[in-house]
C-alpha cells in the first residue's frame, strides 16, 4: 500500500490564498486505509479551510468529495460536473492522484494536501513502516523475504556493514539492521548458504536512475 501523511494545515492554507471556490478531493483506496485522505479527513480539511478563511475575515466556498481511486483517469473524469464552478482543486490522494487530476483538468490548478511517504504496511494502529522501494528488480528470493534495499539504511546488497550492532543499525538504535534480520531469517530457514553468494552490483537503470519508468504488458495492449 502507498502510505502518505497529511501536510501541516499551515502549509496548505497559503496554497489556497486567493481562491474562492475550492474542492477537496479524497481517495478511497490507499490513503483511506493509511488514515490520511479518506472521507473523514476530507471533511476535516474542508471545514478547517472554511474556518481559516473566516478567521481571516474572508469567505470561501469549500466543497468536499471522495472518489474510488484518484490514480484512474476514468474515476477522476467522473468529477467533471462536480468540478464545475471551482477555481482550485485540493487532492488528498498520493502524488499519483494529484498528477492524474492535473492531467484530466488542464485548466484548473491542483495542489496536494498530502506528502506521499512510502510503500509499506501498518506495524500497528497508527504506525506505518517501509517495506519496498520499487527498485524494479526484486531480489527477495535471495534474502529470505526481507528486502535489503528498503530495510538496510544503506541499501547494501552484501551486508551487513560494520555499523550493525546488537541487531540495530548505526544510524539509529531504534532501527533494526536489515541484514541482521536477513541473517536470522535465513538461519531459521536453514539457508545461511545463500549469504555466501556475492550479489553483483544492481542494475539501477531499472530503478529511478533510468528516467521515468514504464510497465508494458504487450498482450494486454492492442
Amino acid at each position: 500500500m502507498i502510505v502518505a501523511e497529511q501536510k501541516d494545515i499551515a502549509e496548505i492554507i497559503p496554497m489556497t490564498e486567493g481562491y474562492q471556490n475550492i474542492l477537496v478531493i479524497g481517495c478511497d483506496t490507499c490513503v483511506t486505509v493509511c488514515l490520511a485522505g479518506g472521507a473523514k479527513e476530507v471533511a476535516i480539511l474542508a471545514c478547517s479551510l472554511r474556518l481559516a478563511a473566516r478567521a481571516r475575515g474572508k469567505k470561501v466556498q469549500v466543497d468536499e468529495i471522495s472518489i474510488e481511486r484518484q490514480c484512474e483517469k476514468e474515476f477522476v473524469d467522473s468529477l467533471q460536473s462536480t468540478v464545475r464552478g471551482h477555481d482550485l482543486l485540493i487532492s488528498m490522494g498520493c502524488g499519483i492522484g494529484v498528477q492524474t487530476i492535473a492531467e484530466q483538468f488542464p485548466n484548473l490548478p491542483v495542489v496536494p494536501a498530502l506528502n506521499t511517504k512510502l510503500l509499506g504496511l501498518p506495524e500497528r494502529q497508527g504506525v506505518w513502516v517501509e517495506r519496498c522501494q520499487a527498485c524494479g528488480q526484486c531480489i527477495l528470493d535471495k534474502t529470505g523475504g526481507i528486502c535489503p534495499i528498503s530495510r538496510c539504511s544503506k541499501s547494501l546488497l552484501n551486508g551487513p556493514c560494520g555499523g550493525s550492532q546488537n541487531g540495530k543499525c548505526e544510524i539509529n538504535k531504534e532501527i533494526d539492521c536489515g541484514w541482521h534480520l536477513i541473517y536470522e531469517r535465513l538461519k531459521s530457514l536453514g539457508r545461511l548458504g545463500c549469504l555466501e553468494e556475492i550479489m553483483p552490483a544492481k542494475d539501477w537503470s531499472r530503478s529511478r536512475d533510468g528516467g521515468p519508468r514504464k510497465v508494458i504488458r504487450e498482450d494486454m495492449c492492442l
Partner: peptide, 12 residues
C-alpha cells in the same frame, strides 16, 4: 460499500 477494509475498527 464505503468500507475500505482498513481494519481500523477491528483494531480499535
Amino acid at each position: 460499500d464505503k468500507c475500505a477494509l482498513c481494519l481500523t475498527c477491528i483494531r480499535t
